[in-house]
Design a protein around this nucleic acid. Structure first.
Lengths: 207, 207
DNA sequence: GTCTATAATTTGATAGAC
DNA sequence: GTCTATCAAATTATAGAC
């Protein structure tokens, strides 16, 4: 009972929300202080400046969101049904927050990829962990490790890209369409040989 | 011969590069003036402030990038081969620019989706045009219009998401893996009935 | 640990000379 | 059309009283 409600926790939570919705450069320490009912001086008391605060916020929200998504993927018995449900849930979450809360790290990731090595590394670590977890999960659909990693990468990329389209157009359709397409892809990969790229019409069944 | 080399054109080009690489909030008018060998006063002479300049820059680079991608998709006779080639080319372009130049509107799109209605509308218009063009192109693979739109949305989402992953991790692999997956998906959708989502094992051939 | 005050810099934006 | 000067506000960051 020590990690809830404290000033540092409120600062971290407010930072996560602002970074998710408007990015790093557009978020000022004054806004973080106001939203967290604290002071700029308190931010410097608890964190190593704006960059250190953002680093901690990204890693923390990245871990939490990864756990949330992996939980959705284990919801149903059939993994492909869970996959479709996860995209549907992401669409519902987005609409429920008026298209504000999608991926907690993507906005900052694009902003800092070419300009801030510390934060680029933080977002990179988050994505690496997610792909790792997703790849393992995908092995329930395709046994080949390389094919599972390809599928995991495609699922994460489709989710992130659909978040961009749905937030920008204020329309859940891109997320729903991406979910349908990933379900189709997973189904096709499960029912066929899964080695390196090969036309399915020529695929031979190894079983 | 009137749209090249002028001060307004240099300002627009510099803005497009900076918005693509670091986003809207992180890009200052002073930096734009320096990079375009002009002055802040000149920016206000030619454009309607920072927002008006960004609006023009996004719409212009959006149209140019859309034309570039559609050109890649028409490169080979087989549309699916062209599709794979487009992702490969995107990966090569990204590496050649040291992971700086990916989608010219995505970074700003995520930044402004919840905070700037003018620029949200600009990025939304760009994405809408792209999906429109892609959907038409996808009808060469799947005849059903709704299925073609689903495929187009998935391709664009996978490209945008893979751009995030590749830029952040400084690794072309996510783009290449997304390309392989989209090729697989397109192949699966071409060789089968293309109505609303239905397991392929149960699909009946309408021809 | 909290809060105020402030330093040093940068931002978007404007006015006016040339 | 170009360029200089400048304004008001906001930025990150720090020092020090309480």
């Amino acid at each position: 009972m020590d990690s809830t409600g404290g000033t540092a926790d409120r600062i971290l939570a407010a930072t996560q929300t602002l970074l998710r919705r408007q990015g790093y450069a557009a978020t000022g320490l004054q806004q973080i202080a106001t939203d967290s009912r604290s002071r700029v001086g308190s931010i410097y008391h608890f964190f190593a400046g704006k960059e250190g605060l953002a680093d901690a916020a990204l890693r923390s929200s990245g871990a939490a969101y990864g756990a949330y998504v992996m939980g959705l993927l284990g919801a149903a018995e059939d993994p492909i049904a869970s996959l479709g449900g996860a995209f549907d849930r992401a669409a519902a979450d987005l609409v429920a927050t008026d298209y504000a809360d999608a991926c907690p790290v993507a906005t900052v990731a694009l902003e800092v990829a070419s300009t801030n090595e510390t934060l680029r590394q933080a977002t990179s670590d988050v994505f690496t962990d997610w792909i790792e977890g997703l790849s393992t999960w995908c092995r329930a659909i395709v046994s080949d490790p390389e094919a599972a990693r390809d599928l995991a990468t495609a699922i994460l990329a489709a989710l992130e890209g659909a978040f961009i389209l749905s937030r920008t157009r204020r329309d859940p359709e891109p997320l729903l369409a991406a979910g349908r397409s990933m379900t189709r892809l997973a189904t096709a990969m499960r029912s066929t040989a899964t080695g390196p790229l090969r036309p399915y019409s020529e695929a031979s069944d190894p079983a």
